[in-house]
Design a binder for these strands. Structure first.
Lengths: 286, 286
DNA sequence: AAAAACTGGGTACGTTGTACGCGCAAGCGA
DNA sequence: TCGCTTGCGCGTACAACGTACCCAGTTTTT
C-alpha cells in the first residue's frame, strides 16, 4: 500500500505530519518559483462540491481538476494524494453550524447542548451523505473537528464525570448518531441510485420474504403488523428511530450524571466557575 | 451506473429479484449442459476468506477466481456481478453465533436478550472488519439476517410496545452498535495499515494540537487530563465507550418499556402466550 | 448423429490513482 | 544584467479494477 501506483481509497495515508501541516496550514510561500495558480482551499471546495452533488463515486482527481480547469497532475502540487484530500474535505465540512448552538453555560444543562449537537451532526450527514462512505483511517483532528470536540466537552464541564468518562460518553453519542444516520442514508441513496423506492423494494422482497415467513421459521416476524418498516424515514428532525434512540440514550446519560453527582458532591451541577484542584494534574490534551 | 463497464463498488445493483433468488437459492439445475464445477457457496466462502484475511481492498473478482483456481470470468456464471457477491457475503456472515444467545422467554426479560445481541453484533464486526466498509445500498434481507431480526423481535414480544416502536428501537440499537464499532475499527485498521500505533498517532498530533490548544481557542480541551483518549479500545467485551453507551441506551429503553406497560397494562411483562386479538390485523411482514 | 443448452474463460475496453519527467517562470546571488 | 535554483503546470505511462463480448468445448435431448 501507498507504494505502488493505484492503492488508495482510504484517508490518512502515509505522511501524517504532512497531513497535519496541510490541515493547520502554515502556508509559508518560499517565494522562489512562479506563483501558484491554485489554493488548497479551492481544491477542497471543488472536491466537496463534486461529492455533494454526485457522490463519492464521482469524485476523482481527474474530475476535480477538470472542474477547476487545470491538468490532473497539477493537484499533486498541493495535495500528496487523494487520501489527504479526503482528510481535508472531512475537516472542511464538519464546521459547526453558523447559526450557532445553545451555549452550555452553568445555567442551562448539558442535555440541551448535546441534543443540539446530535441534531447538528445528523443534519451534517444529511447534507453530505458521502461523509460516512469515506474510508476514514483515523479521524484527523483539524480545526473544525476540534471546535466540535471543544463544544461537546464544554457541555459536560458542569457534570461530575471524570474526563475519561466524558470522552467515552461523547464517543458513544457520536457512534449512535452516525450509526443511525448510516442506516437512513443507505436507504435514501439506494433509492435514488437504483430508482427503486423503499416501498417498491419491500414489494419486490415480498414473494421471497412472504414465503420465508409463512414457512414457520419466523413466528415473531409473522406476528408483526404489516407495514412496520414504513413511516417517513429521513425527514425534518431525524428518523423516528433516531428520535427515540437519542431520547433514550440521553436519559441513560442523565442517570450516569446523577450518579456521579451523588457520589462526588464536590461538583454541584450548578456552579459558577470551578475546577481549581490542587494543581499539576492538568495539561494539554492530545 | 451499472450500465458501462466499470461502475460498482456498492452492493445491491440492478436486478433485485436476481439477488433475492440467489439469496434464497432455489438452485434448480436445468440439466442440459455440462455440470457446473463451482457452487455459489464456494465462491462466497472464498470471497469472505479474502476479505477477512486481507480486507475489502484485496477483494477483487480476479483474486477470488484465482483462489478458487478458475478463470476470472467463470465467476460471472454464478453471480451477476460484484455487487451481488457482496450482498451474499453479508448475509453469509451475519448468521447468529452457533453457541446461541439466551432465549428470551417470558421469564427472562427483553434486556438480557438485546444485550447479548448487541455484544454478538459487536463481535461480528470485530471478526469481519470489512462489513462496515461495504457500500451497502439497502440491507438485502437474507435467511441469516431474518434470523437476527426474528430473535430481536422475539425479545421484545413481551413488552407493551407497538410493533413500529419495536422496529425503531431495534434500528436505534443497531445504529449505536455499528456506529461505535465503526469508530473502533477505523482506529484499529489505521494502526495495522500504517504501522502507526494509536499512541504514536497522538504523539504525532501533539505539536499541532498542543499549539492549537495553547492558543486559547479551546479552553475546555485545555482543561482535560492528559491521556483521556487512551485506555484499551477494542478488547474483550467491547470498548469502554461501547459498554457505557449500551448500558445507557438500554436504561433508556427500559424507561420506554415501563411507560408503555403502565399506560396499556393489557400486556403484562410477565405472561405466557398471548396475542389472540380479534383477528385479521396480522399478516406477513414485508 | 445432430441439435440444443450450458459452462469455462481469453481478450479487450474504459476508468481509476499516481510515478516520472519535461518545459517554463520567477526570484536570488553574482 | 546574467545565470542558477527553485517551484509550477501537466502530458504520458502503467498497473489494477469490473465486466462486455464471444468462441470453444461438453453434456444432454431429440
Amino acid at each position: 500500500m501507498t507504494r505502488s501506483g493505484t492503492s488508495t481509497e482510504h484517508s490518512g495515508s502515509g505522511d501524517l505530519s504532512r497531513s497535519l501541516e496541510l490541515l493547520w496550514g502554515t502556508g509559508d510561500r518560499p517565494g522562489r518559483g512562479p506563483r501558484p495558480g491554485l489554493t488548497l482551499g479551492r481544491i477542497v471546495a471543488a472536491a466537496v462540491a463534486v461529492a455533494d452533488a454526485e457522490g463519492l463515486g464521482a469524485l476523482s482527481m481527474r474530475r476535480v481538476a477538470a472542474d477547476l480547469g487545470v491538468g490532473t497532475m497539477s493537484l499533486y502540487r498541493y495535495v500528496p494524494g487523494k487520501a489527504e484530500l479526503l482528510d481535508l474535505m472531512l475537516d472542511a465540512v464538519v464546521a459547526l453550524p453558523a447559526d450557532g448552538l445553545p451555549e452550555p453555560g452553568p445555567d442551562t444543562g448539558w442535555r440541551p447542548a448535546l441534543e443540539a449537537l446530535a441534531h447538528a451532526t445528523w443534519r451534517l450527514h444529511q447534507e453530505h451523505p458521502w461523509l460516512l462512505r469515506v474510508d476514514q483511517g483515523r479521524p484527523l483532528l483539524g480545526p473544525n473537528a476540534l471546535d466540535r470536540l471543544e463544544y461537546a466537552v464544554r457541555a459536560l464541564a458542569g457534570t461530575g464525570l471524570a474526563d475519561r468518562e466524558k470522552i467515552q460518553l461523547l464517543v458513544a453519542l457520536d457512534g449512535f448518531v452516525t450509526g443511525t444516520a448510516r442506516t437512513v442514508l443507505n436507504s435514501a441513496r439506494a433509492e435514488q441510485r437504483t430508482g427503486v423506492s423503499d416501498a417498491d423494494f419491500r414489494r419486490a422482497q415480498e414473494p421471497a420474504l412472504g414465503q420465508a415467513v409463512r414457512s414457520g421459521r419466523y413466528p415473531a416476524l409473522a406476528g408483526l403488523d404489516e407495514d412496520v418498516f414504513g413511516g417517513a424515514p429521513g425527514d425534518g428532525g431525524g428518523s423516528p428511530a433516531f428520535t427515540l434512540g437519542l431520547a433514550a440514550l440521553l436519559d441513560g446519560f442523565a442517570a450516569v450524571v446523577a450518579d456521579r453527582a451523588a457520589t462526588a458532591p464536590a461538583h454541584p451541577p450548578e456552579g459558577t466557575h470551578h475546577q481549581p484542584p490542587p494543581h499539576g494534574t492538568h495539561r494539554a490534551a492530545t
